[in-house]
Design a protein around this nucleic acid. Structure first.
Lengths: 235, 235
DNA sequence: CAGTAAAACGAACGTTCGTGCTATATACAT
DNA sequence: ATGTATATAGCACGAACGTTCGTTTTACTG
């Protein structure tokens, strides 16, 4: 513990003052780590396996982190950056309110289906793995997922303030429901490869949105249905 | 592989013809195994740890199973028996239809909250752990969860056939939504200790049930609200 | 009560785990 | 181009993993 802390501190100082070739390798390591961890879990992410995949020595790789726990935290952090890039950023390109709310959910489901991470939603998997093991890894995962839930909730509130969504509904409740449906779709897809689950989740979310949309908000929802025009044309 | 199979076969034959003291210890082992596995995962369920907990030797314990994988499968099977006892059985004591449907969901949430397993829903945890690792363990988990989803769906159909629930709704869709809300509540409780999630899940489920209930079915729902009368009295 | 089959044990196996040294090679500033 | 800080490699460690073996203790049957 003490040793690891000292080493980490020394490294942090060095990283600020000096240039870095090691910074590049560190990035490369974490990129690979994220994908292994998403498929095999953060504990299944072993240093030997990681070194093998990157054709480098265990010790050489290990020197970039003070401990396995630090590697895990850094991996979680990297996954967060990817998540923000793949989900949050594109959704925030659309105007706030009902439209962005839909985008957040829609893109999230797409991010799972498209296999950004091999094991589906990185954080859903990591949360299930670490929810019983106290420590910094668990704490970071919990924070990040809370961050996501807050984003969802804030967007709901914004839609309400814009008069697009009924003020009566409880934003915490709706965020919980949307998040649950997303977790449910992720579960069905990971365990059964059931792509239909994404449709079910989208249908359920859309149903709630259109139920709670005000007269102002309702027209915004049509833009968010690329598939429903197709469905209407077919039926 | 071959050795383990032979040993297992010999054991199976012996178990049929002979009596068993070993059968009792096997039960005791699995009882403990289930609780360790639910908290630390099926892979974190280590034979040494298990032996220590039961104050017996690794080898003596190991002899009851041909391999670690067999131990894991047996543990999953034990968890299923507990689940049936704790959730399915009590719910099936009430008449089929809307009432039983509510009971299934309500008791399921209670089973997570009351800590029947230390790690929340055993199968939600196991599914997340094994969804990326092919093999008999994963297959069994997937089967059991499908079994649960089918039970949910069948109960919905029965409620429809009894004229208590609108025929227009898709039972697969509704079962998916209920299951998702349950998984969502389990997630929130495991990661944040958030008991409010159970209320949110119950509210969401009740909201759908009363929305889709027919004139015949609606009266049945009042019986299923022990807390809402209390809530009404308080507010 | 004797005999026998089943059950538990103790010790060891070959691996792999995370981690710690020490030495060498690489990249960067002057 | 050279010197120095940094990055990587090599090797070894103690512990824990699943698994096997031969032996000893326990429990049931005749």
């Amino acid at each position: 513990m003490t040793k690891a802390q000292l080493r980490k501190a020394a490294k942090a100082v060095a990283a600020k003052g000096r240039k870095a070739q090691g910074e590049r390798t560190r990035k490369a390591i974490l990129e690979t780590a994220v994908h292994i961890a998403s498929a095999e879990g953060l504990e299944g992410l072993t240093i030997g396996r990681l070194a093998l995949e990157l054709s480098m020595s265990k010790s050489g790789l290990f020197a970039h982190f003070g401990s396995k726990e630090d590697l895990q935290v850094a991996t979680v952090e990297t996954a967060r950056a990817i998540f923000i890039n793949e989900v949050i950023r594109p959704a925030f390109e659309t105007a706030q309110g009902l439209h962005r709310l839909w985008k957040l959910c829609d893109i999230w489901l797409g991010y799972v289906q498209s296999g950004v991470f091999r094991g589906g939603c990185f954080f859903a998997a990591a949360a299930a793995e670490f929810d019983g093991r106290p420590g910094p890894v668990r704490d970071r995962i919990a924070d990040i997922m809370k961050e996501w839930l807050s984003t969802l909730r804030n967007t709901i509130v914004e839609a309400q303030n814009a008069g697009q969504l009924a003020k009566e509904i409880d934003p915490t409740q709706l965020a919980f429901e949307f998040n649950s449906l997303e977790l449910g779709a992720n579960w069905a897809f990971q365990l059964y490869g059931d792509k239909g689950a994404f449709t079910r989740a989208r249908d359920a979310i859309r149903e709630r949105l259109s139920r709670y949309a005000t007269a102002t908000g309702a027209p915004l929802l049509n833009l968010a249905r690329p598939k429903s025009t197709q469905a209407r044309a077919q039926s």
